[in-house]
Design a protein around this nucleic acid. Structure first.
Lengths: 201, 201
DNA sequence: GCGCAAATCTTTATGCTGGCAAGATTGGAT
DNA sequence: ATCCAATCTTGCCAGCATAAAGATTTGCGC
C-alpha cells in the first residue's frame, strides 16, 4: 500500500491518504457496504461515507454523480458478483440454490440494494446487462434438471419456482422474520427447503 | 364527513379540516401508503405527509413520535391485514399462497415496510404479536396438507418452503426483477409456481 | 353553561443531508 | 516545461428529522 500526498491543510504541507490515487470509488463502495451492513441501505449517507474514508463531503458526488449513482454501481457490482458465485457453484441445482442464499447472507449489503430498485437507476443499461448475466447463471442450474415432464413451459416454471424459493428464503432470513427454531446455518436450512421443491429421484 | 373548526389563521377566524378530529393518525397512515406507492418507503418524508394532509410539519411527530414510529404502526397494520387476508382465503394451501402474493401486490406499501425491519422498530411487542398472528394464519394453510410423509420436521419444512416460495415470488414481482415474459396476472403466475411445490396428487 | 386538565396542533429552532457551483491541486500527456 | 483533464476541496442552499415551547381545542366533572 502506497501513501500519496494530499492537498493543502492549514500548517501542514503534505498529508497521506490510505489508498492509491484513483481508487477512491472502490474505497467508497467498500465503505458503503460496511455502512449498509450496520444500519441498512435507507440510512446510508454520502457525507458519512466521506467521513469514513477521510475525504471531503463532495468527493463521492464527483465519482458517482449522486446517491443513486453510487447505489447503481453497488447494484452492478452485486449482480456481477452473484453471477460469478452461481457459476462457481457448479451444475447441481441444489448447490446453485444454496449458493444464492449464501451470497445473500455473505453480501447482505449488495443483495439488499440489488432488489430495491427505488434506491438506484435500475433501468440503466449496465444494470440490465449485469442482471441478465446473473439470470443466465441461475438458469444454467435449472437446465440440468431431468426434462422428464413433457408439459410445455415447464422449464420456465421450474426456473421461476427455484428463483422464488431461494430468493424468498434469503430475504426472509435477512429480514429476521423467520422463527427462532430454524436451523442456525442458512446453507443447511436452505438446502432442506430447496430439496422440498426438487426432491431427489 | 364532518368539517371541524381549526385554530387561528391571520385574518380568518375558523378554517375547516377534511377529517374528524382525532383521526389524523389514520389519515397520515393512508397518506403514507400513497406516498410509498409513489416513491418507495426510503423516500418517505414526514413533512411531505404533513403537506399532503394539510397539517403542520410537526403534527405527524406528535402522534407517532418519529418516522420509525409511523412505519412501526404501518407494519403492525400490515401484519394484521395480512393475517386477515390469509384467514379469509380459506383452507386450501394454494389459495392461501395466492392470497399472500395478492396481498403483497395490492398492499405494496405495507408489504415493503413489513419486511424492511431497519426502517421501523421491529422488536416492539405489538409488532411481534401481529407477526405471530400472520404466521399462525399461514401455518393453518400448511396444516391442511396430507401428512403422508413420516419424516419428522416435515411439516416445518413444508411451511418454510411454502412461505419462502410465495414470499420470494412476491418480492421478485414487486422489485420488477422478473423477466417480461412471465404471466401478467401475478395471481395466475403465483398459482402455477406454488403448484410446482405442492403438486396435486 | 363553567372551568380545568389533557390531547391536539402550531411555531420556532438546530443539526444533518443531498445537491450544486466554483476553486484548488494533482497526474499525465505532449 | 506546459497545458489539460481528472480529482478533490470549500462554500453554499434548500429540505428533512427532531426537539422544545406555545397556542388551541376537546373532553369531563361539576
Amino acid at each position: 500500500m502506497v501513501f500519496l500526498s494530499m492537498q493543502s491543510y492549514p500548517g501542514v504541507m503534505t498529508v497521506t491518504r490510505p489508498y492509491h490515487h484513483g481508487d477512491l470509488p472502490r474505497v467508497l463502495l467498500q465503505a458503503a457496504v460496511t455502512a449498509i451492513e450496520e444500519a441498512g441501505p435507507a440510512a446510508l449517507s454520502l457525507r458519512d461515507l466521506a467521513r469514513r474514508t477521510g475525504v471531503s463531503h463532495a468527493a463521492p458526488t464527483h465519482h458517482f454523480g449522486d446517491k443513486a449513482g453510487l447505489l447503481t454501481a453497488l447494484a452492478v457490482e452485486g449482480f456481477d458478483l452473484l453471477a460469478a458465485t452461481l457459476t462457481a457453484a457448479g451444475d447441481d441445482l441444489l448447490d446453485v440454490g444454496v449458493a444464492y442464499v449464501d451470497f445473500a447472507v455473505r453480501h447482505r449489503a449488495h443483495f439488499e440494494v440489488m432488489f430495491r430498485p427505488d434506491l438506484y437507476r435500475a433501468d440503466a443499461p449496465e444494470v440490465r446487462a449485469a442482471q441478465e448475466r446473473a439470470g443466465a447463471a441461475l438458469h444454467t442450474g435449472v437446465a440440468t434438471l431431468p426434462p422428464d415432464r413433457a408439459e410445455p413451459g415447464e422449464a420456465r416454471t421450474d426456473a421461476l419456482a427455484a428463483w422464488s424459493i431461494v430468493h424468498g428464503f434469503a430475504t426472509l432470513w435477512l429480514s429476521g422474520a423467520l422463527p427462532a427454531d430454524v436451523e442456525a446455518d442458512p446453507r443447511i436450512a436452505a438446502r432442506t427447503v430447496i430439496r422440498r421443491l426438487f426432491p431427489p429421484p
